[in-house]
Design a binder for these strands. Structure first.
Length: 452
RNA sequence: UCCUGAGUAGCUCAGUGGUAGAGCGGUCGGCUGUUAACCGAUUGGUCGUAGGUUCGAAUCCUACCUCAGGAGCCA
């Protein structure tokens, strides 16, 4: 029976235990050796003391960083400073050697280098911590919605609808390039793609189960080379019937705050590491976000604030157009210094399904802008009026036949409804302070890169 | 895709026209209840790739590749 190091380190009494993990470092003394073992169950290592008479001692002396090891012994209070418990080995077995070419050192590596060894980087403190937080937060996402009676919907990954406006699509086909016979039908009998959003399908469920959410992989074929875009990422999309934009914004704020609080409460060691090595202001920022209300700003007010700022922006502030990144950053990072919810944006820059406001010029859309990351959530109240939706589609040249089932929702018992999409990786970037999306997803898919 | 910057030892970097270096890592030895231990020795290079300029190029020029930061697209 193997005891996890997490459990061993939180022991309340001495015990005979057996642990297994990978050697992080070794310090030899005359007659005995200190071996630091980490099994990924927590950030901390367990210090193993191996006396020269212990079976396996000779092996241990030649075990380099990265070797896997199994140790039986007695967990005792450590006589030295630096750790509460240590394991006095009675038996040590090297399971698998790591030779001198093992690329991870005891000292810090750059994230850029670790990215080139994504199959090993999880053995570093930083990435172990990132992926433990990722796991914990995935759990928190489900907990948040389940506690509020949202129904979890697994929307399809292969889809024929492109959720207009969400981005470029990856084509899914069984036709072989250059060899397909003319007129041969494709697998689904129509063009299909990897989903860019589960929203349209989620809407059908919301119009039956009232409150639903999706949490799954999403694909965008854009040639984006930035620190916050990936071709494959995980998105969380709640959708609520009988809900307007205000309710949508309330949920968004409540959700982000709940995730921050969950991380603060359950990932304290990891957040401590991030604060020490990644972003010194992380704890401060997270505490602030958990406590202070988000700033809600109508688009029109945002334009006024930007114009009155006296700031010389690289791109001019133009009423009626989407804000530039620098504008959003100014609002979230300098003007308000808290997450900002920008809402009621110009209709022309937004997709067909967003509800047209009474002014006829803006739509009930909202973006949550977070300091350091930018847009973390994009959402809207959906257009529930059949004739208005049809008009929106016509003006954008969309075919009603393609969306017949989507329009049916407005034909049969239509209701006001709203929802949003939240990028799980962007949430993790915000919670960990890690500034590149490639470092919060196990194996990043970006243009030109699908290694591992 | 566009703009900017960077590619030198396994890693982090110095070297800016004249004999390729340091620290860390690895190896060997010493020392020590050690804490990213310490001390000594040692190992380690197609200077991103291909051309060009020059008596001579890691260094200057051109192209390409890769990576990073920023922009657009968005989550």
């Amino acid at each position: 029976m193997i005891t996890s190091i997490k459990h061993a380190l939180s022991a309340s009494a001495e015990a005979e235990i057996e642990i297994a993990g990978w050697i992080r470092s070794r310090r030899d003394s005359k007659g005995f050796s200190f071996v630091e073992v980490n099994d990924g169950s927590c950030l901390r290592n367990l210090q193993v003391v191996v006396d020269q008479e212990v079976p396996g001692y000779e092996q241990a002396l030649h075990a380099t960083t990265g070797s896997s090891v199994r140790v039986a012994g007695r967990l005792i209070a450590s006589p030295a400073a630096g750790q509460k418990w240590e394991l006095r080995a009675t038996n040590l077995e090297i399971i698998g050697h790591a030779d001198a070419s093992y690329p991870l050192q005891k000292k810090g590596h750059t994230v850029e280098f670790l990215r080139t060894i994504a199959h090993l980087r999880t053995r570093s403190n930083l990435f172990g911590a990132v992926f433990r937080v990722r796991s914990r937060l995935a759990y928190a996402v489900h907990q948040f919605f389940q506690e509020r009676d949202f129904v979890y919907v697994q929307t399809p990954i292969i889809t024929a609808s492109d959720c207009e406006g969400a981005g470029e699509l990856f084509r899914v086909t069984t036709l072989k390039q250059g060899t397909d016979k003319a007129g041969e039908p494709d697998f689904f009998g129509k063009a299909t793609y990897l989903t860019v959003s589960g929203q349209l399908e989620a809407e059908t469920f919301a119009c039956a189960l009232s409150k639903v959410y999706t949490f799954g992989p999403t694909f965008r074929a854009e040639n984006s080379n930035t620190s916050r875009h990936a071709a494959e990422f995980w998105m969380i999309e709640p959708e609520m019937a009988f809900c307007d934009l205000r309710g949508d914004m309330e949920l968004a704020e409540e959700f982000v705050k709940a995730m921050v609080r969950h991380a603060l409460e359950h990932c304290a060691d990891e957040l401590g590491l991030f604060t020490k090595f990644v972003d010194k202001t992380l704890m401060e920022t997270l505490t602030l976000v958990a406590e202070r209300p988000f700033q809600r700003v109508p688009y029109a007010d945002a334009i006024s604030i930007l114009n009155a700022s006296g700031r010389n922006f690289e791109y001019p502030v133009t009423d009626g157009q989407s804000l530039q990144s620098e504008h959003e950053r100014f609002l979230a990072e300098e003007h308000f210094r808290v997450p900002v919810i920008l809402f009621d944006q110009p209709a022309q820059a937004k997709p067909f399904y967003m509800r047209v406001n009474d002014d006829g010029k803006t739509v009930a859309a909202m973006d949550v802008l977070v300091p350091g990351i930018g847009e973390i959530i994009g959402g809207s109240q959906r257009e529930e009026r059949l004739n208005v939706l049809q008009e929106n589609m016509r003006s954008r040249g969309l075919s009603e036949e393609e969306y017949w089932w989507y329009l049916d929702l407005r034909r049969f018992g239509t209701v006001p409804h709203a929802g949003f999409g939240l990028g799980f990786e962007r949430l993790l970037m915000f919670l960990t302070g890690v500034s590149n999306i490639r470092d919060v997803i196990p194996f990043a898919r970006t243009p030109g890169n699908a290694e591992f």
